[in-house]
Simulated scan of single mutants.
Amino acid sequence: MKKLHIFLLVAVAAAIAILVSYSTDLTTYDTIDSAKNKPGQFVHLIAKLDKEAPIEFDPVKNANYCSFTIVDSLGATSKVISYKPKPQDLEMSERVVLKGRMEADGFYCDDILLKCPSKYKDDMNAAQNKLEARNG
């Protein structure tokens, strides 16, 4: 075999190894019920903050503890426990993406990503109202 062929085979093998290693990081969002069926496994949840339930966060007592309740798109609820400070604007978020593990007493969250409402939503409503006023 020529040196070029050996080099190309090694390069292809390395590329395949890299793709396989990155494919383990690809995940999908779980529901609360499916996460409960995978206790202790790392999952991603997407849900809404239950605004009726209280948010437990007391920075004087423990600044690195926050718990709140979420509701997923199927209506299931779960308590979320995070050992990090409460994210700013949690109450204003439209959705939350949570990374962590489901246990018997709740979802232990390692990372929280807030999906806030669009700043353009009010502008779109105003534009729609102007359009209706012109046509109506």
Rank of each mutant, 00 (worst) to 15 (best):
F42G: 02
T77N: 15
G75I: 05
L45F: 01
A35P: 02
P54Y: 05
K119E: 08
T24R: 11
M124I: 15
S34Q: 06
K99I: 07
M92P: 00
D105S: 06
D110P: 03
L49G: 03
S78N: 11
D72N: 08
A47G: 05
Q41D: 07
I55D: 11
F57K: 07
L90N: 10
D105E: 05
K38W: 04
D111E: 14
L26N: 04
C109S: 04
K130S: 08
S73Q: 09
V96A: 09
K119M: 06
K51H: 12
V96M: 09
D89W: 07
G100F: 08
S67V: 04
E91M: 15
A127L: 12
D30A: 14
K48G: 04
N64H: 10
D111W: 02
P85Y: 12
T28V: 14
S67N: 07
A63L: 10
S23R: 15
D111I: 11
S21P: 01
D123V: 06
D30W: 13
I55Q: 11
F42Y: 06
N37I: 00
L113K: 10
G106P: 07
C116S: 04
I70K: 00
V96H: 11
S34I: 01
P59D: 09
A104K: 13
K36T: 00
A47R: 00
N62V: 01
P117I: 04
T69F: 13
S34E: 03
D105M: 01
I46T: 12
P54W: 08
L19G: 15
